[in-house]
């Protein structure tokens, strides 16, 4: 279980994870914030579909990859939470929208 040990003053912000609203501590990285919130699965590997959670917390292992504000393959341990941030699990390969008009991409 992840528990807070801070004695400092805590400010919170609101983020969305998988459509659910989470109140998290300001200043945390996304990975830490989700771990504290009790999230047990961040991504599923593209090879076998195994559930993964952050392993190294320092940008080395790439197991904390999430979709953050629509962007895939984000190393969540390296990104600070922001008010209103929309976060989703990354299941398998990163997806790219190919059904939208091609021109939107430019």
């Amino acid at each position: 279980m992840f528990t807070k040990v801070t004695s400092g003053e805590v400010q919170t912000i609101t983020i969305q994870f998988e459509g659910e609203t989470l109140v998290v501590r300001k200043g945390l990285n996304v990975a830490a914030a989700l771990l504290e919130a009790g999230v047990k699965q961040f991504r599923e590997t593209p090879v076998s579909g195994q559930a993964r959670t952050p392993f190294c917390m320092m940008g080395v292992c790439f197991d904390c990859l999430l979709i953050i504000d629509g962007m895939h393959n984000q190393q969540s341990c390296m990104i600070e939470v922001a008010e209103g941030m929309k976060i989703e699990r990354q299941l398998g390969m990163a997806t790219i929208e190919f059904n939208a008009s091609a021109e939107q991409g430019l």
Binding site: M71, H72, A94, I96, F98, A100, A102, E103, G105, L106
Partner: peptide, 12 residues
Amino acid sequence: AMTLFPQIRHAK
């Protein structure tokens, strides 16, 4: 690559 397949821009 992006000119031909615009959505590929978000691939890593």
